[in-house]
Design a protein around this nucleic acid. Structure first.
Lengths: 170, 170, 170, 170
DNA sequence: TTTT
DNA sequence: TTTT
């Protein structure tokens, strides 16, 4: 029985690169931590408080590969997904629970190096800032990266039977 | 180029039944109005104000057929979608614009007649309340209706390459 | 540093009544579990799978009191909030983590008993279904309950400096 | 009576600076257009299609002033709000309707000039890119800008009776 | 135009 | 009308 909604929407910075795990049969998942922040002033003490919240993001298959390829540690990203609690057993045999965000959609918010937008760190030698190596060639990796959300939109549209859209990320 | 988000989430009551439009080639769309309300007290006058906002919902293909079949005037529903402005020309030749919510996901919140839940209007003769005729048979239409969100979730999951889910609404 | 978003939106059924905790100084919090469901068919096995996800909802102060008063076990509710991981120590001195949804907005989706809507379980003796005792009087508790979302909208509006709205839940 | 939800969430680029309008009594509103994009490939024609959707954003009072001060044409921003249709009469006396997004929360996604983040266009002479004049002083305007979402979160928290948070944007 |  |  449903009639329910389970939705998470996050904008944050990745705390690490995407760690991939490949299954037999061709499926794969990627995991990475995402940080969101809140700032407020404690009224009682007048003190400024800054909190970081960490979220465990899980992406699957094609989406995981796109994230693995284009998301690097520190990037800003929009993540949409579902909350899911995963049960596991620690080394002492104790049952433990981890809450994960099963990603269903995402949009990169850090412009790719070399994109030259007013938002980008484009101008010069951004690869020196620790960006992951991006493949070069006729297709601008920044543009490719920028298109990934379109892909997600596309897939989501297909989910409602929209016909005139494609199946491919790029 | 994207990196953008265009999302609408509504919970409201339908103001009319779903009006279907079938295209050659097999595609179809359904349209219906959705009402949301807000209540507040005008601070200056102390007067209680109640506002109704009307939204133009557009659903496509399989989703449209499900809505047409199970959503009746007055039902409560959760709608997720994208904002889209459609341009048209009125009978005086003037350009006009209509903002629509292109539905990408939905969940029925009015329990189907006969569902017998604590939330439902189940107990007796609810068809006398003007509910649309529901097909009868071994499958409970209420349950079918309840599953439609699952279908949407399923489709959305597939959009990210999730393998172990199905393609069918029911 | 922010520029981040941490948002959860849930529609589900409460798994228990709201448990209140009052602090010295007048603050209070309420907690309750919320269930969301997903249904899909495992493609490999063809088996129908139904999953229930449980969420720990935390509400504060006035909102907690409203929930405590009008939300009963089994009710359907829309919850909006933030994800927050709370650290605690179990009886063996081990550090444990619990993810909670810190509620910032909510809307009751189960009509109050006696509301007599097509959606309600109004017709007869619904109190026998274990509904909490609602105070009686000139004001319909069902209406009061329905208004709580308006209150939240109102508060949210004020957060942006909207002047012509009120401060009170009802 | 409510029990409804009216929520819009957008990430897009502003198409113009914020236009302020001040009312007697001290209230004010700001308006600006926001663009979101979608990209897909038309399956029938194989053609890549790019659509831009324009949204009319309306912000009020303190939030309007913050946007007016820190948001410049072309900036990327997250906007949360409510859909509202405004009726007006055109110069021919015809009734017209405009759909607006009444902003209730926002987060700047374009780093301020001089922020020096890997995402920023910081390095050199960004004011030549048409950035609005930012006040200088001991407080980094970029940081101030970054804090505005915190302020919104704060206000939203207060809406639920959260006590230990402040009232001030910065 | 219309829902609760 | 306009952003990337």
């Amino acid at each position: 029985m449903t009639g329910t909604l389970n939705k998470v929407m996050l904008i944050g910075h990745t705390g690490d690169d995407v760690k991939m795990h490949y299954f037999e049969g061709g499926n794969s998942i990627g995991r990475f931590p995402l940080a969101t922040n809140e700032v407020y002033t404690n009224k009682a003490t007048g003190q400024r408080v800054e909190n970081t919240e960490w979220h465990n993001i899980v992406v699957r298959n094609k989406a995981a590969e796109i994230c693995e390829k284009y998301l690097k540690k520190g990037d800003k990203v929009y993540i949409e997904g579902r909350l899911k609690t995963r049960k596991w057993t620690d080394d002492k045999g104790m049952e433990r629970y981890t809450v994960e965000v099963q990603c269903t959609d995402f949009t990169f918010l850090t412009p790719p190096p070399g994109s030259g937008t007013s938002q980008g760190n484009a101008s010069q030698g951004s690869s020196s800032q620790g960006n992951k190596q991006q493949e070069t060639g006729s297709q601008n990796p920044g543009a490719a990266r920028q298109q990934s959300p379109a892909k997600n939109d596309t897939f989501a549209s297909n989910s409602m039977g929209n016909e005139d859209e494609d199946d491919l990320p790029f």
